[in-house]
């Protein structure tokens, strides 16, 4: 038992990762041990480095390895636009699309009375500061089309109204989506946001 306790501990930790359970963690660990030189050692080294260097950007809340992330330090991205997202995964999704060339602001969640999340728990005061200091002309509210997401969007809009142009993402039929499979809420949102062709 003691001879395998380190491995058991690794399996236990891996099982806590999203999408993995004890069985899949065991398979992953076994695979890594078999590919020790190719996988386990480089992975351990990468994890050690990331554990030491990963931090939140002090300006926008993005995850990086420096105090201020690459996007915030890039002069090319200082175009007067800030895209407000709920968390870092949303920022990465926006970056993958490559359509947005400005800077981001990661709120770190949404307002929720149920979970006692108020404006002070999110990075809303910091967003207000950035509007002034970075000479922002447009705030794009790219928050989830959920009740909590849109409640947060309206709250931010109330805070910044009159100081900056405020826009939000459109809602409607996704690319590749079939009307037959859409819920009635999405169809009515798409109908309201119809455009000339």
């Amino acid at each position: 038992m003691s001879s395998t306790s380190d491995i058991d501990k690794l399996i236990e930790l891996m099982a806590k990762l999203p999408g993995l359970g004890p069985r899949s963690a065991r398979r992953a660990v076994l695979h890594m041990i078999r590919k020790r030189a190719l996988l386990l050692a480089p992975l351990a080294e990468s994890m050690r480095i990331v554990a030491e260097t990963a931090r939140e950007c002090l300006n926008c809340g993005n995850v990086g390895t420096t105090d201020v992330c690459d996007i915030c330090t890039s002069e090319k991205r200082a175009n007067g636009e800030i895209c407000v997202v709920e968390d870092v995964a949303d920022l990465w999704a926006m970056e993958r699309s490559g359509v947005f060339k400005g800077r981001y602001h990661v709120l770190g969640g949404t307002l929720s009375a149920l979970d006692s999340v108020g404006p002070e728990d999110l990075r809303i005061p910091r967003l207000r500061d950035r509007v002034e200091t970075e000479h922002i002309t447009e705030i794009i509210l790219a928050l989830n089309a959920t009740v909590d997401g849109q409640t947060t969007a309206h709250y931010i809009a109330d805070q910044l109204e009159g100081r900056v142009r405020l826009t939000s993402l459109a809602q409607g039929v996704p690319i590749g989506g079939e009307l037959d499979y859409l819920d009635d809420g999405t169809i009515s949102a798409a109908m309201r946001a119809r455009k000339n062709i």
């Binding site: 009375a113 089309a145 959920t146 009740v147 849109q150 409640t151 309206h154 809602q171 819920d183 009635d184 809420g185 999405t186 009515s188 949102a189 309201r192």
Partner: peptide, 19 residues
Amino acid sequence: LRSRAAAALSGRLALAGLN
């Protein structure tokens, strides 16, 4: 049966009312 999210998300008053 019915999603009311679209109606609620359509305006500030509706969303605040639903909440």
